[in-house]
Simulated scan of single mutants.
Amino acid sequence: MLTHINEKGYAKMVDVGDKENTKRTATAKASILVNKEIIDKILNGQVKKGDVLSVAQVAGIMGAKNTPMNIPMCHQINLVGCDLDFNIDEKENIINIYATCKSVGKTGVEMEALSAVTIAALTIYDMCKAIDKKMVIKDVHLLEKSGGKSGNFKF
């Protein structure tokens, strides 16, 4: 049975009102493949638009907070925490982005974590596109989640 379809076949938001509040956590990852010049400019604070990773950090948090505005069937949840981490692989010219989101509520935070890493990657692209437009955002996926009826998941 499809949970997001009503008896007439139209889209609906699932009613989670009877579910118990539980502590929930989700961690997602995205990667952006860039060139060596971009890596060097980020590491040396030479990107003209500013501190790329600091701006991407804030953008990722905003992305998590605004998830239900962008994903039609997502519930507005009480995010109690969101943090991003960046790992620059200078050998492969990849910036790996990790986001962990936490809530206490009736539904999970997977979409918020996925939104956070995606918006952070798009922000890096936006801030560095004057240097090179061939950047590739890839490998967006959920790493793990805990809490709720479906329990724990690890990729």
Rank of each mutant, 00 (worst) to 15 (best):
M73K: 03
M73F: 10
M73R: 00
H75P: 00
H75C: 02
H75F: 08
Q76S: 13
I77Q: 01
I77L: 11
N78E: 15
N78T: 14
N78S: 15
L79E: 10
L79H: 06
L79Y: 10
V80D: 12
V80Y: 05
G81I: 13
C82Y: 02
C82R: 02
C82M: 06
D83T: 15
L84S: 02
D85T: 14
D85V: 13
F86S: 04
F86Y: 09
F86R: 02
F86P: 00
N87Y: 14
N87Q: 12
I88D: 10
I88Y: 05
D89V: 02
D89H: 02
D89G: 00
E90W: 01
E90P: 08
K91F: 03
K91E: 14
E92F: 09
I94V: 15
I95M: 04
I95Q: 00
N96G: 08
N96R: 11
N96E: 14
I97F: 09
I97W: 06
I97T: 06
Y98P: 00
Y98V: 04
A99H: 09
T100H: 03
C101R: 02
C101F: 10
C101Y: 01
C101A: 15
K102A: 07
K102C: 03
S103T: 15
S103V: 10
V104T: 14
V104K: 14
V104R: 12
G105Y: 00
K106S: 09
T107A: 10
T107L: 10
V109M: 13
E110T: 10
M111R: 01
A113Y: 03
A113S: 13
A113E: 10
A113T: 09
L114W: 07
L114I: 11
L114Q: 11
V117W: 05
V117K: 03
T118E: 09
T118V: 13
I119R: 03
I119C: 04
A120K: 03
A120E: 04
A120T: 06
A121E: 04
L122N: 15
T123L: 12
I124H: 09
Y125D: 12
D126S: 09
D126L: 07
C128E: 04
A130F: 10
I131E: 11
D132V: 09
K133R: 13
K133P: 02
K133I: 07
K134A: 15
K134I: 06
M135V: 05
M135E: 10
I137Y: 11
I137Q: 04
I137C: 08
K138W: 00
K138Q: 13
D139L: 05
L142C: 09
L143K: 11
L143D: 10
L143H: 07
